[in-house]
Design a binder for these strands. Structure first.
Lengths: 154, 154
DNA sequence: TAGATGGCTTGTGGAACACAAACCATTTAT
DNA sequence: ATAAATGGTTTGTGTTCCACAAGCCATCTA
């Protein structure tokens, strides 16, 4: 069964991550569609739950995405009243983005609906393995360029 | 460290996976470009290393991608002599796709070059955690719809 | 007062797709 | 044997997600 006895210098997770994320995103799209959300929205909402009150520039860095596209993304979310742009008191040019109550609820509803996707895609993992995976992903996500850039800003 | 004491019903890895995969793909693009590869090629080659001799239809299912796009993707890889399409002896309509020797080498070279990306993106994880992550991803990838569809075919 | 900055709008373009149609070679069913 | 189905190919068309550039306003800073 071993395709190559001699394995790679170190296992690279990149391709695997890409592969899985694609499959999961396809299923996620289908599940999220009835809620009026798309994967990009889910990611944005998820980030905002943790980093509420972020500047749009900070979001751009976090999401590794152009500022003008952040505008569009937030416009969509704001139109659905899932987020709110508040003016920063210190610098009134800035917008501080935050989830609305409806946003929190919608995110929770989405995550609930996504249980079936987890079931499908992570079926081979038991509960504790899924938790481990989640924690490792979380650690990687918060412990890199993201928090690095954030650290500079704070 | 827990951002919210009361966590979600269960942690959903979907958004996190999407988020990380995006960041990683951006970096990967840059690293792979000088090798004449793009992320999609890396994924295809990686799949083919394990599932060599797959039919193009099987690849389409595995990669969750339209058959006509598989053709295009394989055309690119074949033009670079990284893969080979052999006629199936049993059914001469079928193509059995396999990595060439050059393909194996190029894949290894790519993975080697991607060490720096891992370093950047998974910096917060130590070696054993990275290995765990890799194993969990591998398990999830091979243990779902993929192998399920494959099992039916065999 | 001038320049820099955060954000918004609009427009252009590219990459990765899905989907459809028409085609060949081959296999299978009648 | 002839018809139908199948695996793959080619050539479109359209969509979505993005990057990037230019020009605009409001506001802050020098």
């Amino acid at each position: 069964m071993a395709p190559s006895a001699v394995t790679q210098p170190t296992h690279r997770s990149g391709a695997l991550l890409d592969f899985l994320a694609r499959r999961m995103r396809l299923r996620t799209e289908a599940v999220l569609a009835p809620l009026g959300l798309r994967p990009r929205h889910l990611v944005a909402l998820t980030v905002l739950r943790v980093r509420g009150g972020s500047t749009q520039q900070a979001l751009a860095t976090t999401l590794a995405m152009d500022g003008t596209n952040i505008v569009g993304l937030l416009n969509e979310l704001e139109a659905d009243k899932l987020i709110e742009r508040r003016r920063s008191p210190e610098d009134r040019r800035r917008h501080l983005v935050e989830l609305t109550e409806a946003g929190v609820e919608q995110l929770a509803k989405a995550e609930c609906a996504l249980a079936e996707v987890d079931e499908e895609m992570l079926g081979a993992l038991d509960a504790s393995q899924r938790e481990t995976l989640y924690n490792l992903l979380q650690l990687a996500a918060t412990g890199t360029g993201v928090s690095c850039a954030q650290a500079i800003l704070e």
